[in-house]
Nucleic acid binder design. Structure first.
Lengths: 392, 392
DNA sequence: GTGTGGGCCGAGCGCCGACAA
DNA sequence: TTGTCGGCGCTCGGCCCACAC
């Protein structure tokens, strides 16, 4: 077992896994809304959210079998000691590993609260993402590159040759090199990737509906990522793992860490969690919970990621504010806001969101602010010490 | 969440996973030494053993991060409510799921102890297993069937045709049908599988070193299984799973079940655990621990599985008897026997075994029996009630 | 008895422009 | 602008034997 230099006992990354160095590529594959908190900053951890994620992986409801952890609050304020970005060797699935240390009430009180809002995720500008068509993934042909994308992202072709051809080299998350023949031909003229494309498709087991990303990083390297379509049920290949055990394990680890002031490790898969995360920057939490007035009937905006990995704003109205699970996680702010969505695609949007996910339209409220939440539901998890710091 | 008819709250099998019906095939793929206990019988569960298995999957040592479960004894006597055999949809990896209910001291005392030793695993007799060669898995050719195996297992060919040909149909663990052309040709004559073989190899992603099994079951069906070679490090594809969490979860689930007299679920992968299991029949445990005299210097035999899935006997000498982990699991009999192996391949054999794995050669001890273990280390985990039942 | 390689035939991979949406 | 198709050349998948250990 490796320990880091800080000596805090945080868990080393699993041996044998590739460390992801291409931060841009990781963020691009994770999605435009991903924003990891800064190492050394403070975050809020929601056991409830993490449990939801575990349950989601096995498509099973959280059952009542699990023991109670009465000393485990619905949210833990933690010091973030480490963030490591990973990509699964088999599937290229990206995820982050965080080492968290719950703070004692003492520590929570002692320190000032710098308003760090996390690393602004390095959203690459010079990149494109395309969802693969049946023709793209068939063995019959190559990859049809959208014209604007090719002109913006790919190196310019030498149009003196006919047809113009060049070799593209791109690296994936595991630093594996992929070579493609990029040609501009056909009638009408178009950009195509031919030789090298099919081996990439079969190696990554891509199917129609999955997406590929081409990105330039700061070091002038062309990066290549994939994003798989959300399939109905990705069967967990981990045969020995019981989701109950994982669920219990997460709760037990968090509770133990909180009780002994030690570290615990959580894994964060942005493709699953987004947009409802379970580790968020403390400053974001405080701003949303204590400095923002929210009430039933209020209008709000919220960012969502589309299939094409762009960002869209959706509008909605707050219909009620209450605990998601009053029995097991009383006074948790996680997904405490019930909302109604404006558009007809409302069925696809989740009916519950968290305060820090939405952007209230306070300037034009549809109804008068009857019950400002920030005043009615003060800080509670045994650490009223924060009251002195956060004025409201 | 589905509950079984017994109402005991045992966990249903994961939805969406194929239930394995071919018991023979399951056992064949699991290995010749596999023997699952009978439903309704009593077993002993070793949390320590299970933790070892979890650690093995990530090739990481069990660290000291985990909370203590002072109420969790080193072994739990449990009622076995359910055993389900599974095969991973992706990899065909076989594993069993067991629902266990820890018994109260009352229950342990009240009931008689029938000497069930588990289902004698249905070891198929009419079968063969071959480790694949480079030629077998190459795209250039088919599968070369060992002559004796073909003559014993495959249906007899019609030698009136030249060359003799027939179609073989076999079913795998997921009840998927595979068709092969079986031909007897070449100079010298040999049995080959040609058409259909390569699709099987690529579908199962078989490589040289993996094994295939052909088995006849009771219903006169030809079954087809695979057993992958032990590769250096099978990276766990489960990205969100922390082995710490799993480890803690298993301990917490077991401790909680023991405290509340409820059920918990364990997964058992015979290819990993063999031959040191963590769920064994109670009768086997009692026989080994209380009715067998073992001492330092004593000679013993032990069964091992060879690469070719046959069984071999190895001889050795007991060098010491002590707890594997006196601090965390005091008085556990799990791998309490340190041994030295006779052969030069000793480095490959584990240096510690459990009492129920070995077969002491009491008739010809090399050294006199100085410290019979059964007498020196009586039953302990708070249930001395068993003393009255097990005479010694 | 069985693993590997050469020969050799043909299915299908993969490159091309022609359409049409 | 780009998804799909018919065309067609050529690679390699796959069936055969010879040979060697």
């Amino acid at each position: 077992m490796k320990l880091s230099a800080s000596g805090l006992g945080q868990q080393a990354a699993h041996e044998g896994e590739n460390k992801c160095l291409n931060s841009e590529l990781w963020h691009a594959c994770a999605g435009p809304l991903v924003c990891l908190p800064t190492v050394g900053s403070r975050v809020v951890y929601f056991p409830q959210g993490h449990s939801e994620q575990v349950a989601a992986t096995t498509n099973k409801e959280v059952d009542a079998h699990i023991p109670n952890y009465p000393n485990l609050p619905p949210q833990l304020i933690c010091q973030l000691h480490n963030v490591t970005m990973h990509a699964d060797v088999e599937t290229d699935e990206v995820y982050a590993q965080m080492t968290l240390q719950p703070l004692t009430p003492e520590e929570q009180k002692d320190t000032f609260l710098p308003m760090e809002l996390g690393i602004p995720s390095k959203q690459p500008t010079n990149y494109f993402c395309k969802t693969l068509t049946a023709s793209d993934t068939s063995t019959h042909g190559g990859f049809s590159v959208p014209r604007r994308a090719a002109e913006k992202v790919f190196p310019p072709l030498d149009f003196s040759q006919q047809p113009p051809v060049q070799e593209l080299i791109a690296r994936d998350l595991h630093d594996v090199e992929w070579k493609f023949r990029h040609i501009f031909r056909g009638q009408p003229k178009r950009h195509l990737l031919t030789t090298g494309w099919s081996v990439f498709v079969s190696a990554k087991r891509l199917v129609a509906g999955d997406s590929v990303l081409f990105i330039w990083n700061e070091n002038n390297q062309l990066l290549l990522g994939i994003r798989r379509a959300t399939r109905p049920q990705t069967v967990l290949p981990s045969s020995v793992l019981s989701s109950d055990s994982m669920h219990i394990g997460l709760l037990a680890a968090a509770a133990h860490a909180a009780a002994t002031n030690s570290c615990f490790t959580v894994f964060y898969n942005p493709r699953w969690a987004s947009p409802s995360e379970f580790v968020i920057p403390l400053s974001k939490y405080i701003k949303a919970v204590f400095h923002t007035r929210v009430s039933v009937g209020m209008r709000f905006r919220m960012l969502f990621e589309t299939e094409e990995s762009s960002v869209r704003r959706y509008m909605g109205t707050i219909t009620s504010i209450s605990d998601l699970d009053p029995a097991r996680w009383p006074n948790s702010h996680w997904r405490s806001v019930k909302v109604g969505w404006d558009e007809s695609t409302a069925g696809e949007r989740q009916p519950r969101v968290s305060l820090w996910e939405i952007e209230p339209l306070t300037t034009f409220p549809m109804y008068p602010s009857l019950f400002p939440l920030g005043l009615k539901r003060p800080w509670h998890p045994g650490s009223s010490s924060l009251h002195g710091i956060v004025p409201y």
